[in-house]
Nucleic acid binder design. Structure first.
Length: 875
RNA sequence: GAGGGCGUAGCUCAGUUGGUAGAGUACUUGCUUGACGUGCAAGGUGUCACGGGUUCGAGUCCCUUCGUCCUCACCA
């Protein structure tokens, strides 16, 4: 930053250079210093397939604010970065690319495919990391991890084997959510539900004995091929006598029984349900209870299996049409209604989920959920805002077993082997060479991989070296804060908590700081299909990373969604520019060899005032950050910098800077540097680039603002007397400006002010301020003045007379005074009502009552002054 | 069906332990004041969704209603 700065701040000249400076200085690196208290955040690892979007931008801004602040406070901070291998998403992407080349997975084989996947990862996996750097993220890049790297893989195997040995991981044939597009099972959490318009087909199945029909309804007639029973409620009087009878399934003409099961709701429809164990989770359960056969009619990609004659090879929707037609022909359709129902879809590709019976691996959740619930209940893990613990409890308390096997190649391969001879299952961290049961050497590893979330669940400790007892694990675990969106509490947060409880016998982090999602200016979710996504990189290019970060931090309260708009970033950019120009002003007034920031001797009134306000500010901002009120903290900084420092202090400082008093000039310069430099520190976590750039240019101590000491509250800097004095003066200045504006007197028209007050000392000092700030030519202070044809401006502590007789419209002035009096009378009435209330005086705290009494007196004084002015004008 | 969020100035939102409502933006007016027009000064708009309760005092705590959004569960 040269001393002759541009009028406008240009982030493009600054950001990349500053980021490189930080990297070169190694300031992001966590030293693992046991002497210091640790503060640790592990990044929610973005998918290697991902591109930076607003969600990342928000999440990383919040993390960087916390990390930079704690670093300046002197903690040994570690922000551990990394990426997620994102099994389904990545595999789908690579398969799609291969499809365009005309190759399939099978063509390449497992090894060839994985080689290709790793190549893809090397090429594109780092892209999002580079984008995070553009945001200014101060991650310890030397410790970057990947969920599929060697260490994480080791942790995954360790956990899998441990859980298996404890009986908490098992393999079983269950009905799972199957995505016919991704060709893999997915967990319950990965199924989304959407309302879809459909139909309700009312069918009738004939009794074998010819005694009529049973009527039932279905939304999926194509599954009827696999029906193995019809169920009624055991208490249903209507069907009491038919339980146990046999029906003839239309089309197939297979015989199926009528069974009784409490799963059926008597009041819904006809009270009869067709049972298709292979294609519905509830039916599957019913089937287990009644020993019903499971007839799977679909292939993995949801086409009718070859053995089904004319339907073979049809996809599920074609099959539906064909089967409905045939049912119709058989007279099995009673009626068709329109019906809207919830359909489960894959959260990755949005294909309709096909429930499917298959052999999968599961984590037994109930025993794991218990301690995970406990540690939130007893406060060891806190959600911010608190209300999200309800969401968490609800989910944890109703949790079902977690299906963790995926029919994919890109991921952690399940460390289980099956003996080709005797079928023994061997679960082991290392590849076994002989079967422990039969001793043969023919073992085949399970072809499946694990759910991506299985490895990210271990992220807070796997990245610190677990299962090894590394110094990092010792020092940084449990981590401090986890920052993430409410949309991934189930996927990730909950699973990290129970994983840490189980494997570390400890919590993974003490606070979960939850944020909402970033919506577009109209409040819609940003999405690819709507095309309303705003690219953070484009915003950075147009407005700068600091402006983007400031926008995301401002007006955002924990757990709530926010809207993003160009106007907001524009306002943030303007703020950066304001700061820039304040710095520019200070710099152009500095001498050649200014000392590092310090508080000079002989402080003037305004110096003590700004020092006092800054002191309070540093306390408040720190308090807000402690409570994760980042939005409040940043708006206080905004107000202080713009409304206090720039609009008042800098303006007032010009008095001394333009004077001939060298000593006073130096004091003003020192104070400007001191306040600016320290305010930059408070702002640094929010706007790291511009604060560093300015801080470096001003006189400074130390290498970088990001490792400078966070300002702390110091009671020696409390100057409440000077604050009051300045308040009196500022009120007077504002009142004068207001009146002059009302009377349309241009600022260039200076006038002499006569100030009648009992605070003569204060207003003696104020005279010179008024010259600068309120178009005053000369000020005279006294107890009272008797002036003809003067405008009188009444403030709480002063009456200011301005002899502008012929400029003033007397009638208007009288009207204005009357209006003002009315308002003050109303205020007085309000306060007096309280004071006349015996209850208030008796029960409210003494300080509050005293405050109200003082206010009442001030109002009375003001009314007296207005009356006096009126009397003069009316004369 | 269960749980939760939100409803404050035209718009977008703050409002940190209850003490006479704030910002940004938009709008009006004045300012070519040597940091900044991405600026300065001045200005107006609110029965804080509705009704009730607790309290000396409620935007803030509790309850009802209405509107709106979300999450989870789900009836075939």
């Amino acid at each position: 930053m040269a001393k002759d700065l541009d009028k406008q701040y240009d982030p493009k000249n600054v950001e990349d250079r500053i980021y490189k400076f930080w990297l070169d200085g190694n300031f992001f690196h966590a030293k693992c210093d046991p002497e210091k208290d640790p503060y640790t955040i592990v990044i929610p690892p973005p998918n290697i397939t991902g591109q930076l979007h607003m969600g990342h931008a928000l999440d990383n801004t919040l993390q960087d604010i916390l990390i930079r602040w704690r670093r300046m406070q002197g903690f040994d901070t570690l922000w551990l970065p990394g990426t997620d291998h994102a099994s389904i998403a990545t595999e789908a992407k690579i398969v799609e690319a291969m499809r365009k080349e005309g190759i399939t997975k099978e063509d390449l084989g497992r090894e060839g495919f994985l080689k290709r996947a790793w190549e893809w990862k090397e090429k594109f996996g780092g892209r999002i990391i580079e984008q995070l750097k553009k945001m200014g993220s101060s991650c310890d890049w030397e410790r970057e991890r990947f969920t599929l790297d060697e260490g994480c893989s080791k942790a995954v195997k360790e956990v899998f084997v441990n859980l298996y040995n404890k009986g908490l991981i098992y393999r079983g044939e269950r009905i799972v959510n199957w995505c016919p597009h991704c060709l893999t099972s997915i967990s319950d959490a990965e199924v989304e539900y959407e309302d879809q318009a459909g139909h309700f087909w009312h069918l009738r199945y004939p009794f074998k004995d010819g005694s009529g029909y049973l009527e039932l309804a279905t939304t999926r007639p194509e599954t009827m091929l696999g029906d193995t029973a019809v169920a009624v409620h055991p208490d249903d009087e209507r069907y009491k006598d038919i339980v146990g009878k046999t029906l003839i399934l239309p089309i197939t003409h297979r015989e199926i029984p009528v069974i009784a099961d409490t799963y059926v709701e008597m009041d819904f429809g006809t009270g009869c349900v067709k049972i298709t164990p292979a294609h519905d989770p509830n039916d599957f359960e019913v089937g287990l209870r009644h020993n019903l056969p499971v007839i799977d009619t679909f292939t993995d990609d949801a086409h009718i299996r070859p053995e089904w004659g004319k339907y073979a090879g049809m996809d599920r929707y074609e099959a539906r049409k064909a089967i409905v037609e045939d049912l119709e022909k058989e007279g099995a359709i009673v009626k068709i209604e329109d019906y809207s129902h919830n359909v489960g879809v894959c959260y990755r590709c949005h294909s309709s989920i096909e429930p499917k019976v298959s052999k999968q691996w599961f984590v037994k959740m109930e025993p794991l959920a218990k301690p995970a619930i406990e540690c939130v209940k007893d406060g060891r893990v806190k959600f911010v805002p608190e209300r999200f613990d309800k969401t968490y409890f609800h989910w944890m308390e109703n949790i079902k077993d977690w299906c963790i096997s995926r029919q994919l190649w890109w991921g952690h391969r399940i460390p289980a082997w099956y003996c080709d001879e005797c079928g023994e299952i061997v679960v082991s961290k290392d590849t076994p060479d002989t079967c422990p049961k039969c001793g043969c050497k023919h073992l085949t590893q399970d072809p499946d991989t694990l759910d991506t979330w299985f490895s990210s669940a271990l992220w807070p400790f796997s990245t610190l070296g677990w299962p090894e007892k590394t110094p990092e694990l010792q020092h940084y675990f449990p981590t401090s804060t986890l920052v993430t969106g409410y949309d991934i509490i189930f996927f990730w947060v909950a699973r990290m908590i129970f994983s840490a409880c189980e494997n570390m016998n400890d919590i993974p982090f003490s606070t979960v700081f939850i944020h909402g999602i970033v919506r577009d200016a109209q409040g819609r979710k940003m999405s690819k299909s709507l095309g309303n996504g705003i690219d953070p990189l484009i915003v950075i290019d147009q407005y700068g990373a600091d402006a983007l970060r400031f926008t995301l931090a401002t007006g955002n309260s924990p757990g709530n969604d926010m809207r993003f708009s160009d106007e907001k970033v524009g306002a943030s950019r303007n703020f950066a520019n304001k700061l820039w120009n304040a710095a520019r002003f200070i710099l152009m007034n500095l001498g050649e060899d200014e000392k590092a920031p310090h508080i000079p001797e002989d402080l003037a009134l305004e110096d003590k005032w700004i020092l006092s306000l800054f002191n309070k500010l540093s306390k408040e901002v720190t308090d807000n950050l402690e409570k994760f009120e980042l939005g409040i903290a940043v708006s206080k900084l905004y107000d202080f910098i713009w409304d206090v420092f720039c609009d008042w202090y800098i303006e007032i400082s010009k008095i001394r800077l333009n004077s001939d008093d060298e000593k006073a000039k130096q004091t003003a310069r020192d104070m400007l540097v001191y306040i600016m430099s320290n305010t930059l520190k408070l702002l640094h976590p929010f706007m790291p680039f511009i604060t560093e750039e300015i801080w470096q240019t001003l006189p400074h101590d130390g290498e970088s603002i990001m490792i400078s000491k966070w300002p702390e509250y110091d009671e020696k800097h409390d100057f409440s007397v000077e604050e009051q004095e300045m308040d009196r003066i500022m009120e007077a200045v504002r009142a004068i400006r207001n009146r002059r504006a009302e009377m349309n007197v241009p600022p260039s028209r200076k006038a002499k002010y006569y100030i009648a007050t009992s605070y003569k000392d204060t207003f003696e000092k104020a005279g010179i301020f008024m010259q600068r700030l309120a178009s005053c030519s000369e000020a005279e202070v006294g107890d009272s003045f008797e002036l003809e044809d003067a405008v009188c401006i009444v403030t709480t502590d002063a009456k200011i007379y301005i002899p502008m007789g012929d400029l003033v419209d007397f009638e208007a002035e009288i009207a204005r005074l009357n209006k003002e009096k009315e308002k003050v009378l109303k205020d007085l009435e309000f306060v007096e009502k309280k004071l006349n209330n015996a209850n208030f005086v008796a029960k409210a705290p003494a300080a509050v009552v005293e405050g109200q009494k003082e206010a009442a007196q001030k109002y009375r004084d003001k009314i007296a002054m207005i009356d006096e002015s009126l009397a003069k004008l009316n004369k």
